[in-house]
Write a protein that binds this DNA or RNA. Structure first.
Lengths: 200, 200, 200, 200
DNA sequence: CATGAATGAGTATTCATTCAT
DNA sequence: AATGAATGAATACTCATTCAT
């Protein structure tokens, strides 16, 4: 077992965390490109030079922020870590929760959106996002399959394809472009109607 | 009839168009913020000073580019200006067309995506995007209603809410995040299955 | 009698005047360098190109504005065109009037100040300012000599040198730098005391 | 004793001084607005980016230059830091010295003049200039009072008001507008005659 | 580990001036 | 006599990154 780098001390680890948290906040505030390394360093209580000691380039910091974001900001707030025995209810909760979250924290979703686009030119980002989406896709497909077993979800649906479709809905949903009033409110119910068995 | 103040000559109109086209290309290539006025001017064959003669600020150019994009790049390429008598077929064509387009021209959709986010802080952009989405929403809802009259689309659906949902699918779709292979291909069929009457 | 240039039509003459007036206002507002030819032209109701037809360079316009300023703005507002038979009273009125004017229209004096400095590198400006100061100097010296003949002004003063000194006071006065309160109010009286014969 | 955050090293202090000196020279040469940050940086042997590291904006540099100017360029060159026991002689020396200085270094006084005008819109400048004028006013008033005690200056003068008047003379004097020849030379003597007791 | 100092390469924007028509 | 179109040359300011200490 070769050890390339001495284990970072506890002090260093804490600084890293502080930098990532500050970076996340700054990027939520000002966007991926708009966030300034100087501000991030200041918010973490250190100088830019020190920031670059921990993260040689801004892209390195961005990667760490994405990792942190997926790990800390995506599961619990959306109920994705709960065990659901009603797949349809889970989906509806997800959609409703996301709509609320997107309104309350648009910067959070702008950041994720920017990272998805940025991932096209950064393999490290791409890998993280792919893993995240794959997880998510599997979760949703699982909900659907569970629903089909319970007879609550239409049996003729392809769970994989429908899960993909739902992920697209979610991705589009957080953009929340200006749309005619009213239709949005009925979105959760409509999705339910599309997926549920007729009898229900 | 004497004209004291001559209207912009044909030369100026052409240069405006050339600038907008160059701006569109540069923004597709490098993004909204990444596009440099210098490059745009050079690509249009003029100096930066002349660019600023036509568009005092970069934001003014961005607005003109969005207008151009909505008008020239969104309708024909997606078949939105065709008369469809089968709403379901129209939708399927739209989704398939968008997927192809999103793969062929990701920069185009990145630009639209950036403009949607930017519109949150620019009333002029917001208005254009709202008008565009409203049109689009009405078109899709119309397709759905037509399908319901023909008995091809499930009668229990709310055309407004479903149209909103489809727009979200489309918005998410063009982001095209990395997803497990295969599921995407069946997306058009799946959407069809969700919406169509069972008999069909 | 040779005629070098055809007499300008009445229309042209009026535009020239309008441009000069607009130039004066803009320079009072924003200073000599701060005034923009574009704004001046717009304020005169014409385009920049036309402004340059009348005044090939900005410096040409500045010269015309100085001429206009000396002619229209310096005599009447300060009572310099009145016939005074009490030189001392005239001086006191001048100083009081200038202080009021400098407070009410600081931009006017900033402009004159800038022009005096600019005149070091522009012979045409220098000539106009020299003529203006010479006139003014002669007027003040005349007041002093008149006062000496009346026995109201100290006979031992050199009217020329004292006039120079008074002009310096005036030039400094319009700058109105921040000074301890109070002393300024007594300035007119003090000047009087310095110049007047003891008996008075 | 460990020092966690090192104070600016001697290197930085020297560069600051060099920048201020270069700024002063450039502003004397080309005026406040005319001085270019590029040239100043080049003259100090650094890049523009480094200039902005020390002085975030040009205005910050201007303030530092004014401070330097008042401290380094106004006292010694004019004999204001000498102890005089003859106030009248001090005044005469001041006036003569200023006239010489104004002829030798017109740019220096143009700069001060511009700063006085600029101080109307910059509180930091205003405060420095007010402090400087207050000092100066107190010095001159002190000279006058001393002269009155010695019986050399007319007892009926108000030292405060006369000091104000003298400052105005000085401010106007450094402008040195074109005036009829000769009168200027007698200015020092004339001022003396105005202020001195008749007997002297 | 940490930082003060320094910078290369931009960046959008400005403005008096010109010229073909 | 007038102007729409065009521009050269600048201008202050920015920001991620580097490096000696």
């Amino acid at each position: 077992m070769s050890v390339k780098r001495a284990k970072p001390g506890p002090r260093a680890e804490e600084r890293r965390e502080r930098l990532i948290a500050a970076g996340y906040r700054a990027m939520v505030r000002s966007g991926l490109e708009g966030a300034r390394t100087r501000d991030i360093a200041a918010e973490a209580g250190i100088t830019i030079a020190t920031l670059h000691y921990y993260f040689p380039t801004k892209d390195d910091l961005v990667r760490a922020v994405l990792e942190h974001t997926i790990r800390q900001q995506m599961l619990a707030p959306l109920g994705l870590d709960t065990d659901w025995d009603d797949g349809l209810a889970a989906l509806r909760t997800l959609v409703t929760g996301l709509m609320r979250h997107a309104d309350a924290e648009p910067g959070h979703f702008r950041l994720l959106n920017e990272m998805i686009w940025a991932s096209r030119e950064d393999p490290a980002l791409r890998e993280m996002i792919a893993a995240w989406h794959t997880d998510w896709h599997a979760t949703v497909a699982g909900w659907l399959r569970g629903g089909q077993e319970d007879g609550r979800v239409r049996a003729d649906l392809d769970p994989e394809a429908t899960a993909t479709l739902i992920i697209y809905v979610v991705l589009g949903l957080v953009t929340r472009p200006p749309l005619p009033d009213g239709a949005e409110d009925r979105l959760g119910a409509e999705l339910h109607r599309l997926l549920a068995t007729v009898e229900e």
